[in-house]
Amino acid sequence: MKPNVWRKLQNTREYLKYLRIALHVLFWLIIFFFFIYVKKPLMGLSLGMTALVEVKDVIIISSIFYFLSYYVVPKLLFKRKYLHMALCLVLVYYFYAFVAFVEYSLLPRFVDIPGKGYHMYAQRLLNEGVVGILRLKDAPEILLDLSYLLSPALIMKLAVTVLNLSTQAFKLERDNLNLELAFLKSQINPHFLFNTLNNIYSLTLDKSDNAPAIVLKLADLMRYTLYDSNAPSVPLEKELLFFANYVELEKIRHTKRVTIDVEFYGNSDGLSIAPLIIFPFIENAFKHGINKSIKRSWVSIRLGAENGVLKAEVGNSRFSPTPTEREKEKNKGKKVGGIGIANARKRLDLLYPHAYTLNVVEDVSSFLINLTITLK
Rank of each mutant, 00 (worst) to 15 (best):
M85K: 03
I200T: 06
V364P: 10
K185Y: 14
L107W: 11
K137G: 00
D57S: 07
V102F: 10
I59R: 04
Y246G: 14
A97K: 02
E327P: 07
L165W: 06
A211E: 01
F279S: 09
S317F: 13
I301A: 04
Q187W: 14
D57F: 03
K256S: 13
M49L: 13
R109S: 03
K79D: 09
E329D: 02
I64S: 04
M222I: 12
L9M: 05
I30N: 01
S166E: 15
E173W: 15
T372S: 15
V247S: 12
D112I: 03
F243D: 12
E103Y: 04
S186Y: 13
Y148A: 07
I273L: 12
E325D: 01
A244L: 06
R318D: 00
L29R: 02
M156E: 04
A159K: 06
I200F: 06
A122M: 06
F319T: 00
Y104V: 13
A305Y: 06
F192T: 01
N164Q: 04
S229F: 08
R174D: 14
K17T: 05
V58A: 01
P235D: 07
E128W: 12
I294Y: 12
Y246M: 09
K217F: 09
S268Q: 10
R257Q: 01
F78P: 03
V262H: 03
Y93D: 07
V299A: 13
P41Y: 15
L240K: 05
V247M: 10
S63E: 05
L165F: 14
W6S: 12
V25D: 10
A342C: 00
A344S: 15
K81N: 07
P353E: 05
H24F: 00
L197F: 14
V72P: 09
T324C: 09
T167L: 13
A97R: 06
E263R: 11
Y37E: 10
G308E: 10
E362L: 02
L143Q: 00
R347T: 05
G117I: 01
E313K: 13
L126R: 08
H354G: 02
N189R: 09
F286Y: 03
I142R: 05
F95A: 05
R347V: 08
S300P: 00
Y94H: 11
L172P: 02
A355T: 04
V111Y: 03
N307H: 12
S293Y: 02
E128F: 14
L47N: 02
N199L: 10
F78E: 04
V25F: 14
K251T: 06
S293P: 04
L68Q: 13
K330W: 11
D349L: 11
P235E: 13
T322D: 03
E14M: 06
T324E: 03
K17H: 00
N189Y: 08
V309K: 12
F286N: 08
F65W: 04
L146M: 12
L271N: 04
A344Y: 14
